[in-house]
Amino acid sequence: MNIPAGTIPTAKADKKIKINSELKTEFFRRYFRVVHGLFAVLILIQFLPDQLQTETYIFYVIWFAVGVEILTLILSAVIKKTASLNLFTDIVGFIYGLLIAWTLATAKFNLLKAALFPPPGKVFRQFINDYDKILVNIQSSVGIILQGYLLALIIAIPLGLFLGWNARLGSSATYISKFLGAIPPIVYIPYGIALLPTFKSVSVFVIFLATFWPVLSGTMSGVMNVEKKTIDSAKVLNVGKFTMLFSVILPASLQQIFIGCNQGLTVSFVLLTSAEMIGAQSGLGYYIKNYSDFGDYTRTIVGLIVVGIVIVIISFIFNSIQKYLLRWKQ
């Protein structure tokens, strides 16, 4: 009986305390984050006295921040991976920081030109008031992009497969597409205007060209870089030409094709918004340009934010599709 009485229960209790403290740190790690401090700061500064003569609509900012904060807390409980949670709260933290700086520089200290830089509350309010108008413009821009883009994919991918698979045509087509693809698509606009009836059809045409060449080149180089072993294992299965192209060569070169598609998408957006700023009667570029012409910088900023959001959503969808189609890669 060398062991003093009570040792075992103590060890058990120690373990319990240890588990408890682990749970506690896990709780702290999840819910006690800098981002929530930034939220508090953002809310508090809204109640500082305004320096602007006009209304600053602080409650729009507060409601927005509360909404984001609730979402953050829900996701803090739901998201399991620490890395994903960090990513999300870091982005939210950036948004809070931006809103803090924006509020202070405009409404509270009036450091910027009030006509050019409206306070955030005003922008949020405008966003809600212009909701339907913005949707129409998004529809117009995204519609044009999708038409030009999808048309280019439907033609460029099969053509690239065919040309890349044909050794002789493939090598000359590579050089030709390099040359033609190097011409910035914007220079085709005069021809588009001369040949096509509407702004919309010209835009679709230019986006088609902007997407067509990178996707064609990507597809051809993908096809030419398919490993001989992959082709051999299809050949010994005695596959037909169509199966070879679409069931073997296409998936094998998919990664390269996506590089071309991604490039086309980026260029398409830049082109379209620029074109809309010059010659359109609808679309997000038009929305921005039109209101900035009238000196309505609240709506201009609304437009800028919407363009950003639309691009983020589209690239998210694009990446999800890519991830799904390439899920077999590790």
Partner: peptide
Amino acid sequence: VVFQHYSLFPWM
């Protein structure tokens, strides 16, 4: 045919 490597298509 069975090869030493790459008999299978990785996307299937």
